[in-house]
Amino acid sequence: ACGWVTVDSPTILLGSTVTASCTIQSNRCGGLEGEEIQITWRLNHESMSGSQHKSIEGAEVSNLTISHFNQTRAKLWCFVVGNSTPQRIGMAEIHAGYPPSKPENLTCMMNLSENCLTCHWDPGLDGHLPARVALKSSKSRGQCEVSQEAIPDCIPQAGQNDCTIPRRFLQLYQKMDIWVSVQNALGTAESEHLCIDPMDVAKLDPPVLKSIQSLPFQTDCISVAWEVAPTSSHIEQQCELRYMTHEDPGWTLVPNIVSPNLKTHHCGFLFGREYRFQMRCMRVTAMGYWSEWSPGWNFTTHEKAPAG
């Protein structure tokens, strides 16, 4: 070839030194024969000059050293300056950045209605380099000492720090080994491993309030009938009820309502007041996540009965 550029490495640590050389065999460059060859460089648009010498084979070689390379991406052009316009003869692309940092705070949540497992993590510092991020997982047993069937990598959308593993790759009610791996030209980093049964990190769908009544009649008590979500009716749940009045908007919480008894009874309500009720549930073993609050239900208690 007429001319070419070599760099010690196309990908380097940000701030480190780049050494490059441009070799021109003028006898191979139609139109340069016999001309006095002068080599110059351009880093993107910034002109630079190297130290030029003649190689044993008679080619002109220019060496360039750039220390504290501070651009994450740059094109290094080699020009030959002849009589006419300087000619671009060769080029090298340089990427600079950092090895990937360890992804942190990996958490996963099983969505029971969509039947998939979504995991999220904090990516840590940007390596500035093209990186392959993958949520890796494998079916396992016991406490994940032995990995079994590997599951295809889950590749997050560009720039996203979460990924969703579809149902067909999950093994429910059995431990799975899950971690994040980030790889770029300067290295690889892996998050801590999670050893979880997807059903232990399930977020339940909210329960549904079915009816609210003043019971027993003419007392300050109310009875709330409710149902768990169909998608989690097979799961033993503990739920909590909350209510508030418009007058003082703070919520009052009634904890430890355990499914499957689908009626709950509470007293101490003010007469002739409009209350707003909501309920949410979680696994009775407290593993996994609270559901969202159920849709609200407004109920106005009856007026106080006339005395005597």
Binding site: L172, Y173, D197, M199, P230, S233, H234, I235, E236
Partner: peptide, 12 residues
């Protein structure tokens, strides 16, 4: 417990 829950789910 896990199997009982899973059987209940499948039955549903």
């Amino acid at each position: 417990q896990k199997d009982l829950e899973y059987i209940r789910k499948i039955k549903g």
